[in-house]
Measured scan of single mutants.
Amino acid sequence: MKVIFLQDVKGKGKKGEIKNVPDGYARNFLFKKGLAVEATPANLKELE
């Protein structure tokens, strides 16, 4: 799953980066803790 990092995550990505991460990791950790959002067209547009 492609995500946009909202904060630096040690060993995974830095704020503003767009990266592919495993689905479970994204849903169960990154999204729940507010560290990233899914890289949807709407979210990508907001990032610009």
Score class of each variant (00 low, 15 high):
Arg27Ala: 07
Met1Ile: 13
Gly16Asp: 04
Asn43Lys: 09
Ala36Lys: 01
Arg27Val: 13
Leu6Arg: 04
Gly11Trp: 08
Leu44Lys: 05
Glu46Trp: 15
Ile18Asp: 00
Gly16Lys: 01
Lys2Val: 14
Glu46Tyr: 14
Lys33Phe: 15
Leu47Met: 12
Ala42Trp: 07
Lys32Ile: 14
Ile18Thr: 07
Thr40Glu: 04
Lys33Ile: 09
Leu30Asp: 01
Gln7Asp: 08
Lys33Tyr: 15
Val37Arg: 07
Val37Glu: 05
Pro41Gly: 09
Val9Phe: 03
Leu6Ser: 03
Lys2Ser: 13
Lys15Tyr: 05
Lys10Phe: 13
Val9Asn: 00
Arg27Ile: 13
Gly16Pro: 00
Leu30Lys: 00
Ile4His: 02
Ile18Ser: 03
Val9Trp: 05
Lys12Asn: 09
Lys10Pro: 15
Asn20Ile: 15
Lys2Thr: 14
Lys12Arg: 15
Leu35Arg: 02
Arg27Met: 10
Met1Asp: 02
Lys33Asn: 15
Asn28Arg: 10
Leu35Val: 05
Asp8Leu: 05
Lys12Ala: 15
Lys45Val: 09
Asn43His: 10
Ile4Pro: 00
Ala39Gln: 03
Ile18Phe: 04
Val37Pro: 00
Pro22Trp: 08
Phe5Arg: 00
Arg27Leu: 13
Arg27Gln: 10
Lys33His: 15
Lys19Met: 12
Lys15Phe: 04
Asp23Tyr: 15
Asn43Glu: 07
Leu35Trp: 13
Asn43Gln: 09
Leu30Gln: 01
Lys14Asp: 05
Leu47Ile: 13
Asn43Tyr: 09
Leu35Gln: 04
Met1Phe: 08
Ala36Tyr: 01
Ala26Met: 06
Lys32Ala: 12
Val9Tyr: 03
Val21Ala: 03
Val9Glu: 01
Gly16Thr: 02
Lys12Pro: 01
Ile18Gln: 05
Asn20His: 14
Ala42Asn: 12
Asn43Trp: 08
Val9Gln: 01
Gln7Gly: 06
Phe29Gln: 06
Arg27Phe: 11
Ala42Lys: 13
Ala42His: 13
Thr40Ile: 07
Lys33Leu: 15
Leu30Ile: 01
Val21Leu: 07
Pro41Ala: 14
Phe5Trp: 03
Lys19Asp: 02
Asp23Asn: 11
Phe29Tyr: 14
Pro22Ala: 11
Met1Gln: 05
Gly24Ala: 13
Gly34Glu: 06
Asn28Ile: 08
Lys32Ser: 09
Lys10Thr: 11
Val37Gln: 06
Val3Gln: 00
Val21His: 00
Tyr25Asp: 05
Gly16Arg: 03
Leu6Val: 08
Thr40Ala: 05
Lys45Glu: 12
Lys12Met: 15
Gly11Met: 06
Lys33Val: 08
Asn43Ser: 09
Lys12Phe: 15
Lys33Gln: 14
Val37Tyr: 06
Ala42Ile: 09
Gln7Met: 13
Gly16Gln: 03
Lys12Val: 15
Lys19Val: 11
Asn43Pro: 04
Tyr25Gln: 04
Phe5Asp: 00
Lys2Tyr: 15
Ile4Thr: 02
Val3Met: 02
Val21Phe: 07
Pro22Thr: 10
Tyr25Ile: 07
Ala36His: 00
Lys15Glu: 05
Thr40Gln: 04
Val9Pro: 00
Gly11Asn: 08
Ile18Met: 04
Leu30Thr: 01
Leu47His: 10
Ile18Ala: 04
Glu38Asn: 05
Gly11Asp: 08
Asn28Ala: 11
Gly13Pro: 00
Ala39Thr: 02
Ala42Pro: 08
Asp23Thr: 14
Ala39Pro: 03
Ala36Gly: 05
Glu38Ala: 10
Lys45Tyr: 11
Lys19Ala: 10
Gly13Phe: 14
Leu30Phe: 02
Gly24Ile: 12
Gly11Val: 02
Glu46His: 09
Lys19Phe: 06
Asn28Tyr: 14
Phe5Leu: 06
Gly34His: 11
Lys33Thr: 08
Gly24Asn: 13
Lys15His: 05
Glu48Leu: 15
Phe31Glu: 02
Phe31Tyr: 06
Ala39Asp: 03
Glu17Arg: 03
Lys12His: 15
Gln7His: 12
Ile4Trp: 04
Glu46Ala: 14
Val37Phe: 04
Val21Gly: 00
Ala26Ile: 08
Lys12Ile: 15
Gly34Pro: 01
Lys15Ile: 07
Gly24Phe: 14
Glu38Thr: 05
Lys45Gly: 09
Asp23Lys: 13
Gln7Thr: 12
Leu30Glu: 01
Val9Ala: 02
Lys14Trp: 09
Lys14Leu: 12
Gly13Val: 06
Glu46Lys: 11
Lys33Glu: 12
Phe29Lys: 05
Glu46Asp: 14
Glu46Thr: 11
Pro41Thr: 12
Gly24Lys: 12
Leu35Ser: 02
Glu17Gln: 12
Phe5Thr: 01
Lys15Gly: 04
Ile4Tyr: 10
Asp8Pro: 05
Gly24Gln: 13
Glu48Lys: 06
Asn43Leu: 12
Leu6Phe: 03
Leu44Phe: 05
Asn20Lys: 10
Gly34Leu: 09
Leu30Pro: 01
Ala39Ile: 05
Lys15Arg: 12
Glu48Arg: 06
Gly34Gln: 09
Val9Gly: 01
Phe5Lys: 00
Phe29His: 10
Leu6Ala: 03
Gly34Asp: 06
Leu47Pro: 05
Lys33Arg: 13
Glu46Asn: 11
Leu6Pro: 00
Lys32Thr: 10
Asn28Ser: 10
Val3Trp: 01
Thr40Leu: 06
Gly34Asn: 09
Pro22Phe: 08
Phe5Ile: 01
Gly13Asn: 02
Phe31Met: 07
Leu44Met: 11
Val3Leu: 02
Leu6Met: 08
Met1Arg: 09
Asp8Arg: 04
Gly24Thr: 14
Lys10Leu: 10
Lys19Thr: 08
Leu30Ser: 00
Gln7Glu: 10
Pro22Gln: 08
Glu48Trp: 10
Ala26Trp: 08
Phe29Arg: 04
Glu46Phe: 12
Val37Ser: 04
Asn28Trp: 12
Val9Thr: 03
Pro41Ile: 13
Asn28Gln: 10
Phe5Val: 00
Ala39Gly: 04
Asn20Ala: 11
Leu35Thr: 02
Glu17Asp: 14
Arg27Glu: 09
Met1Glu: 03
Asp8Met: 05
Val37Ile: 14
Ala26Glu: 08
Gly16Tyr: 09
Pro41Asp: 13
Lys2His: 09
Phe29Gly: 03
Phe29Trp: 11
Gly13Leu: 02
Ala26Asp: 05
Val3Asp: 01
Ala42Gln: 13
Phe29Leu: 06
Lys15Val: 08
Gly16Met: 05
Lys19Gln: 07
Pro41Tyr: 11
Thr40Phe: 06
Ala39Ser: 05
Leu35Ala: 03
Gly11Gln: 04
